[in-house]
Amino acid sequence: MSEPAPTGLVLGPLEVEIMNVLWSARGPVSVRDVLDALNSTRTTPLAYTTVMTVLSRLADKGAAARTKAGRGYAYTAAVADEAALAVREVIRGFGAAAVAHFVDEARNAPDLMARLERLMQEGDRK
């Protein structure tokens, strides 16, 4: 059985909540759409400007993509999940050394190493 994925490694708690809205959206969403989704389950509502600021920071981090929509922006998730963002940040920060350490760690986990080898072979075919 696999372990649950950790959350909050790269993103703060509110950022994770907002990304969950983006990940579950069927298309681009406005700040108001995200605000309404978040506030539908909260006892203390968030302010529009709070959600707008966090979405802007998520775009700056590369976790969300934004496109001009009228006078504001529409947002979509730019990464598949938090793990993708974490890996990208580690590789940006440490480059080839991070990849080498990852492979060393994978060697100690046969299932992970087998998956890595499969992914590498699939990549060669593309």
Rank of each mutant, 00 (worst) to 15 (best):
Val29Ala: 12
Ala100Asp: 15
Ala97Asn: 09
Ala86Ser: 08
Pro45Phe: 03
Asn20Trp: 11
Phe94Lys: 15
Arg118Trp: 09
Ala74His: 14
Ala98Val: 13
Ala80Lys: 14
Ala5Ile: 03
Ile18Leu: 07
Asp124Ala: 15
Leu22Met: 02
Ala64Val: 10
Val21Glu: 00
Leu119Met: 12
Asp60Met: 09
Ala5Arg: 09
Met1Ser: 10
Ile18Tyr: 01
Asp36Lys: 04
Glu82Thr: 06
Arg125Gln: 06
Met19His: 02
Thr41His: 05
Glu105Ser: 15
Lys126Pro: 06
Ala5Val: 05
His101Asp: 13
Val10Asp: 04
Arg66Gly: 01
Ala63His: 03
Thr49Cys: 07
Ala69Arg: 14
Thr76Gln: 11
Ser56Trp: 10
Ala47Lys: 11
Val103Tyr: 00
Lys126Phe: 12
Ala84Gly: 13
Tyr48Ala: 06
Ser30Lys: 01
Met52Thr: 05
Asp36Trp: 00
Asn108His: 10
Met113Thr: 01
Ile18Ala: 02
Gly95Ser: 08
Met1Tyr: 08
Gly95His: 06
Glu17Ala: 14
Lys68Phe: 08
Arg107Ser: 06
Pro6Gln: 11
Ala77Pro: 14
Arg125Ala: 15
Tyr48Lys: 10
Thr67Gln: 13
Asn39Phe: 03
Pro13Cys: 08
Met52Pro: 05
Arg66Met: 00
Arg26Met: 05
Glu82Tyr: 08
Thr43Arg: 15
Thr43Asn: 14
Arg118Thr: 15
Met1Phe: 03
Ile18Phe: 08
Ala25Lys: 04
Pro6Ser: 09
Arg107Ala: 12
Ala83Cys: 11
Thr67Ile: 15
Gly93Asn: 14
Lys61Phe: 12
Tyr75Leu: 03
Ala80Thr: 12
Val87Gln: 04
Glu122Ser: 13
Phe94Thr: 12
Pro110Ser: 03
Glu89Arg: 15
Val99Asn: 05
Pro13Asn: 04
Leu35Asp: 10
Pro110Ile: 00
Thr67Cys: 14
Ala63Tyr: 12
Ala100Gly: 11
Ala83Asn: 10
Leu9Pro: 05
Thr67Glu: 14
Asp124Arg: 15
Ala109Ser: 13
Glu105Trp: 11
Arg71Ala: 06
Val31Leu: 04
Ala98Met: 03
Arg26Leu: 02
Ser40Cys: 04
Arg107Ile: 00
Phe94Met: 12
Asn108Lys: 13
Leu14Arg: 14
Thr41Ser: 08
Glu15Gln: 15
Thr7His: 05
Ser30Phe: 02
Val79Glu: 00
Leu119Ala: 11
Asp33Glu: 01
Leu11Pro: 10
Val103Arg: 01
Thr49Pro: 06
Gln121Cys: 03
Gly123Phe: 09
Leu38Asn: 00
Ala25Met: 02
Leu55Ser: 02
Gly12Arg: 14
Thr7Asp: 01
Val79Leu: 05
His101Leu: 14
Val54Asp: 01
Ala78His: 12
Ala106Gly: 04
Gly93Phe: 11
Leu112Gln: 04
Pro13Ile: 07
Glu89Tyr: 06
Leu22Asp: 03
Glu82Met: 15
Ala97Arg: 13
Pro110Trp: 02
Val16Ser: 00
Asn20Arg: 14
Leu9Ile: 14
Ala5Trp: 05
Met19Asp: 01
Arg26Ala: 07
Ala47Val: 07
Lys126Asn: 11
Ala100Met: 13
Phe94Leu: 14
